[in-house]
């Protein structure tokens, strides 16, 4: 807070700082907003000024077989990849937190490495390796690849959550007569669920926005929404791109809100325990 007795230098600092940050946040935020109105443009250029209001580009998106197929593919691949990443990642996280063995640090590093290795290297490696196995141009290969890309997010968030988890609660439940399964679903899961879900959201976002590995692994039949957008931007940048972008912005806003809600909930639970 600016004190009433602040010196001119302090005042200048106070307002200058806020002005500067305002500009930087505008740089972050405005470009994303710029594309939204263009999706309602009546004519076929992705350019201002707009000539009128129209929903034709949403109609184009909804009726074009290529875009519909791409949306379908994204809705098949991303949830499956996320699910696979969440299940495998959560199991492994429990193991990593609870077990102790030599080489654990190395194994953790290996499991997190898909996040670090440049995507093009992953794409080329999987492409050359998957092709003889018949996994290129197949949903199976794509789901597997996307799951591997998502796993690090699940592992990092779930291990972080588990590290803060008090395993005495599990002992307490068992000593009060709950069977292991009940304990897991009634005690452990609700406590670590925010970690799993936020890890899953990261994994989902990664898969839902993945282009490079998809470029290498997918055939036209498996082209996902980002893959189709990539082709669109490169080939023929029409307002349909803006319509898809707008839909994706709405989606990312929803994901952001979910995550925020989870964070608040976790904060509340922590507060309750205190």
């Amino acid at each position: 807070m600016l004190q009433p007795y602040a010196s001119p230098v302090e005042r200048a600092w106070y307002y200058g700082m806020r002005g500067l940050v305002g500009l930087i946040l505008a740089f972050l935020f405005l470009p994303i907003l710029v594309i939204v109105p263009l999706s309602f443009n009546a004519d076929s250029f992705l350019m201002y000024p707009m000539s009128g209001f129209s929903l034709r580009w949403y109609e184009e998106f909804a009726t074009s077989p290529a875009w519909r197929q791409a949306l379908m593919n994204s809705l098949i691949v991303s949830p499956l990849a996320t699910l696979l990443a969440m299940v495998l990642g959560t199991l492994a996280s429990i193991g990593l937190v609870r077990a102790d063995f030599p080489g654990k640090a190395l194994l953790t590093a290996v499991l997190i490495s898909p996040m670090v290795v440049p995507v093009v290297v992953i794409g080329v490696a999987m492409y050359i390796f998957f092709a003889p196995l018949g996994l290129t141009g197949s949903y199976t290969g794509l789901v597997l690849a996307h799951a591997i890309l998502g796993v690090p997010f699940v592992v990092t968030t779930v291990t972080a959550t588990l590290q803060g988890f008090d395993f005495n609660l599990v002992r307490a439940a068992s000593s009060l007569g709950a069977n292991p399964l009940t304990t897991f679903f009634r005690v452990t899961l609700p406590m670590v669920a925010p970690g799993i879900i936020s890890g899953g959201l990261f994994a989902f976002a990664t898969s839902f926005d993945e282009v490079v590995v998809t470029l290498f692994l997918a055939s036209p039949e498996q082209a996902t929404l980002p893959r189709q957008m990539f082709a669109g931007i490169r080939e023929n940048i029409s307002p349909t791109i803006a319509a898809v972008a707008t839909i994706l912005i709405v989606l990312s806003t929803l994901m952001l809100m979910t995550l925020e809600w989870l964070r608040r909930r976790a904060e509340r639970m922590r507060g309750a325990r205190r």
Binding site: I94, A99, F101, V110, P114, M126, F130, I148
Partner: peptide, 28 residues
């Protein structure tokens, strides 16, 4: 025993990452 059991939980993921990620990169 505890280590073994919990270690086993890591196994599925470790296998998947090893076979479908580390191996391809190694062979590349």
């Amino acid at each position: 025993r505890r280590n073994l059991l919990f270690g086993a939980l890591i196994l599925p993921l470790a296998l998947v990452v090893l076979v479908a990620f580390i191996w391809p990169i190694g062979s590349l």
